[in-house]
């Protein structure tokens, strides 16, 4: 089962929930969990789950993209590549092609359509994947190389790399990036359930409504909400969830103690073991919602 943890708004507690849920699941006896648990940090522009989990990484792998290389000798300046490039990454002036690498999405259209076969592709490293373990928990993350602006291929490769090696009943948690743009869409693709972490503020609600549209309308995924920093103004989230028919599966209170534990890079469940019951309960609820 693939569970994607998303939020819309940043800083609501996706990583907090993801790491503590993952760590709870690997040693929970309440859950019939003979399966492996995987956590994938899909926030490849700024992965931070490893800061808390401190896993031992033992495999690394580069992520490459096919970068078009235009042979100016073969190019007849016909302009076909310009017509097919959705991203305007190529211009032709004075019969010479100019390629803007940073706009290229490596879609392959120019190579495929060039009537002169003047475009070749050479691999370019755009990121790195790492995989390792923390106790029984399998942990993997992707990291987009500095200076590159397209995280999606790194997330796609990270998922492909891990999901190809898991058993059908393994539990895979994906910690998505904030927002509702392409990287989040990629993190939700192939998910079986979306866990939406929010906070009871107008910003939290606004972005929860955006991510809800994506999850419900585009992906038609079963989902549930976790209210983090709960206890101040929960009713705004409750009203929204009731309206959209989304269950609230867990609440984590607004607490200075929780913030302090997090700020020191520790897992909440190590200092507040009572949270394990709450998180085991969350997982059971997710299974129930998914079964319908």
């Amino acid at each position: 089962m693939v569970i994607t943890i998303a939020s819309g708004k940043g800083g609501t507690g996706k990583t907090t929930i993801a790491i503590n849920l993952a760590a709870t699941l690997v040693d929970s006896e309440k859950i019939e969990c003979h399966h492996s648990v995987w956590l994938l940090d899909c926030d490849v522009e700024e992965p931070n789950a490893a800061l808390f989990l401190k896993p031992a990484f033992h495999i690394k792998k580069n992520v490459e993209r096919p970068l078009p290389v235009i042979d100016p000798e073969k190019c007849s300046a016909c302009g076909r590549c310009i017509e097919v490039c959705e991203y305007h990454a190529i211009a032709i002036v004075g019969k010479k092609p100019i390629f803007f690498k940073e706009l290229c999405h490596a879609c392959g259209s120019c190579t495929l359509n060039c009537p002169e076969n003047a475009i070749d592709e050479k691999p370019e490293v755009i990121g790195i994947l790492k995989s390792g373990k923390r106790g029984l928990l399998h942990f993997s993350e992707g990291l987009l190389k500095i200076g590159f602006s397209s995280p999606v291929p790194v997330i796609r490769e990270l998922k492909k790399w891990v999901i190809s090696s898991v058993e059908p009943h393994d539990i895979i948690l994906l910690d998505a990036s904030p927002g509702t743009t392409c990287p989040v869409v990629e993190s939700l693709r192939d998910a079986d359930f979306a866990l939406l972490v929010t906070e009871p503020t107008p910003f939290g609600l606004h972005d929860l409504s955006l991510i809800t549209s994506l999850v419900q309308e585009e992906f038609k995924l079963p989902c549930g909400v976790v209210i983090n920093k709960s206890g101040t103004n929960d009713s705004i989230i409750e009203n929204f969830c009731q309206d959209k028919g989304i269950p609230i599966l867990m609440r984590l209170p607004l607490s200075r103690q929780i913030a302090e534990i997090y700020s020191k890079g520790n897992l909440l469940i190590n200092k507040l073991p009572e949270l394990k019951d709450l998180l085991s309960g969350l997982f059971i609820q997710i299974q129930n919602v998914k079964r319908g």
Partner: peptide, 18 residues
């Protein structure tokens, strides 16, 4: 023609002019 393009507007407009 580049007015509302999602990305690469400068390149597309310059190509049109060139």
């Amino acid at each position: 023609p580049a007015k509302d393009t999602p990305g690469g507007a400068g390149i597309q407009a310059a190509q049109f002019i060139a």
